[in-house]
């Protein structure tokens, strides 16, 4: 069974079963062809993982979906709408949020302000509601709510970055290398946080080099190498393959 998503990618999207669709996406920067004609899709409530070694183009895909790097070709469709040219801010308002590579929490802002910054577009009531949920899910956030986020450990910062992305209850959560540089314990904590997101019915697109813990969380997987799709399939199918071959 080859990759069915790739074959169907060129067909027009039907909003009911497709949340996000990349159609022959090209990304270039500094002259490098980082992503070449990539076609994948994410259904509502589904978790999809992009795996690959450094330089495979995973982060470029995530950043292109958020609009932080421009697409050089192809289309990005979200809820049936072409968003290829829209700004990151309007994508954020439409329900796409990101936990970026390297986490990039607002280092000088407190934990609470970081979480609230994700709810810039929301009403006060909605922001408070999100905050309450976050504090319930991660009690240690409440305990240290006034601490500047820059003083936290990498694993704690990752949780703050995910919490910030969740404040606005997005439809699609993009996680760019959430396990990068984390200890096994912090990876387990972050995985637990991602499961909470899944329970809420949000769709998640994860780019990750650490394929094993990422695949544990996903429904579908895509393996990238030097900007192109090497293989796609269900997690079971991906797990049956020799992943290290794609890295080393």
């Amino acid at each position: 069974m080859a990759s069915p998503t790739v074959e169907r990618a060129a067909e027009p999207a039907t909003p009911t079963d497709t949340l996000l669709e990349l159609d022959r996406l090209d990304v270039r920067y500094g002259g490098v062809h980082a992503v070449q004609e990539l076609s994948i899709r994410v259904r509502p409530g589904e978790t999809v993982v992009l795996i690959g070694a450094n330089g495979a183009g995973k982060s470029s895909v995530i950043n292109a979906i958020m609009g932080l790097v421009p697409a050089a070709g192809g289309q990005i469709r979200y809820l049936g709408q072409d968003i290829t040219r829209s700004s990151p801010a309007s994508r954020a308002r439409a329900g796409i949020r990101i936990s970026p590579e390297g986490r990039r929490v607002f280092a000088h802002l407190s934990i609470e302000d970081n979480i609230l910054s994700g709810g810039y577009t929301l009403s006060k009531a909605k922001r408070d509601e999100a905050l309450a949920w976050m504090y319930e899910a991660f009690p240690w956030l409440a305990a240290r709510r006034k601490a500047p986020a820059g003083t936290l450990s990498g694993g704690q910062q990752q949780i703050v970055a995910i919490a910030r992305a969740l404040t606005a209850s997005p439809k699609l959560l993009l996680l760019d290398e959430p396990f990068l540089g984390l200890s096994p314990v912090a990876i387990a904590d972050t995985s637990a946080a991602i499961r909470l997101v899944q329970e809420r019915g949000m769709a998640v697109l994860i780019s990750e080099q650490m394929a094993r813990p990422a695949l544990k969380l996903a429904d579908h997987g895509h393996v990238l190498r030097t900007g192109t799709l090497r293989r796609s399939g269900t997690v079971a199918e991906i797990r049956d393959l020799a992943l290290s071959e794609d890295y080393l």
Binding site: P88, A89, R93, R104, F106, H108, D113, Y120
Partner: peptide, 14 residues
């Protein structure tokens, strides 16, 4: 303050 800290990531918060 978010803009002062990291303009790009602030943009991704809308």
């Amino acid at each position: 303050r978010a803009l002062a800290d990291d303009r790009t990531i602030a943009l991704a918060q809308g």
